[in-house]
């Protein structure tokens, strides 16, 4: 085939741009949180399934025993971070209007940061018995 007849590929535009830069740390953090969530998630699901009932008193007692509050906090933060990274990839894949993509990712960051703060704050005050 003659060169003129070949369809230009996106590779032409990508050559010379360098490495994936921040893309790698996003990918890596998604894998790291995934690995942490294997034991943390299993612990969370089986612990919560195992409590005798879901009254406020029972859950508070469960939180205050041993390191449960610590593990729950670690699980919540890791899970919310992992969720943020995952939803970002889905948004990048399916939202093709640039300003909308940036807007959704901005709101997502805000929501996830708030959720992390709220979870940690709630767990801390539950442990302290406020």
């Amino acid at each position: 085939m003659k060169k003129e007849q070949m369809t230009p590929t996106p590779l032409v535009q990508a050559i010379g741009l360098g490495s994936a830069k921040a893309g790698f740390s996003h990918w890596w953090l998604q894998r790291l949180t995934a690995i942490f969530l294997i034991p943390l998630g299993l612990w969370f699901v089986f612990s919560l399934a195992g409590v005798p009932d879901y009254s406020a008193a029972t859950i508070q007692a469960w939180l205050r025993s041993g390191l449960n509050a610590f593990w729950l906090g670690l699980f919540a933060v890791t899970a919310l971070l992992h969720a943020r990274l995952g939803i970002e990839v889905v948004v990048e894949d399916y939202v093709h209007t640039r300003w909308l993509e940036v807007l959704i990712k901005t709101l997502l960051s805000l929501a996830m940061a708030s959720a992390i703060a709220l979870a940690v704050f709630s767990i801390l005050s539950l442990v302290r018995g406020a």
Binding site: Q60, A115, L118, A119, I123, S125, A130
Partner: peptide
């Protein structure tokens, strides 16, 4: 889960 924890605390 976050709402549930927030509700339990506050």
């Amino acid at each position: 889960l976050v709402l549930w924890l927030y509700g339990l605390a506050f």
